[in-house]
Amino acid sequence: MTTSIKQLPDIEQVLSGNGACGGCPATMGLRVVGKALGSNAIMLLTPSCAVASMGMTPKLGYNWPCINICFASAGSSASGITHAVEIMQEKGRLQGELPTVFTWTGDGGTYDIGFQALSAAAERNDNIIHFCYNNEAYSNTGVQRSGATPRGCFTTTTPTGKRQPKKNLALLMLEHNIPYVATANVAYPGDLYDKVVKAKNTPGTKYIEILAPCYLGWQFDMSETVQMSRAAVRCGAWLLWEAENGKINFNNPSARIISGKKAAEPVDEYLMNQGRFNRLLKGPDATQRIAEIQGDIDREIAFMRERAKITV
């Protein structure tokens, strides 16, 4: 049973008046993460919109100790800090409960540039939570292509549409044999809250990926942020699942799509509501392009359905 909105705690870790755009899904997700983690945490940020949203010295938009680190080092820096905190507690210089060390990075700092450090941290199974808020492009620098950008998508570096499908990094992290991997979505805050609480109470490396539809990069109206992330789940472009010790469980509504109780909606409407797709779907090859994107989604659903059956 997912936590309902009325049961979520009052604690607010993202303060009003930060530097994020209006309708930013990253701060929307971070608010829910803050409710789950509480104030006893240390936040690490690689270059991303989240760093720009912090605001200007001497004010800080997030109610945690924040450390800005270089792009490639999310995993290694978090490992260092979590070891330091443990040693400080051993020597008696830190009293009480250990703070949760977590990284808050975009898809660039996870999929591409930050991947080797994250992979190494996961292999060492250091006690960190890695959050990836995935807006499927390098939105902070003006929407360039990343490893998370889906096929057929316009970015400034792929003006005719990306030719390759995106990679499934959550699955890749699962193959590191870490204790907890989950995917979440800003449109389902109760589900996200439960996953973060579970990750907080699990020792070892945890990986949570949150789909964050950026209205600037995806080119839709900023008030539709939540509707767009809900549409991504309903058409199967984004699957909600969690894996505890390697066993995959799907969460609703993705569970209904995977089990076949409810067919995934056709991807057409989802694509046509986003400028990044529909500006390339006006020529004679539009049907073929849509079929390619639908093929990627169908393959991913079929693959994850079979992958979930492996429980060894």
Partner: peptide, 25 residues
Amino acid sequence: IYCPEAVIDREESIVDYRYCKGCGV
């Protein structure tokens, strides 16, 4: 819960217009 800016009061639904960016979510 969906307000990215945390400007809406939980109990009374009062908006803090000093910081509301007007996104319309």
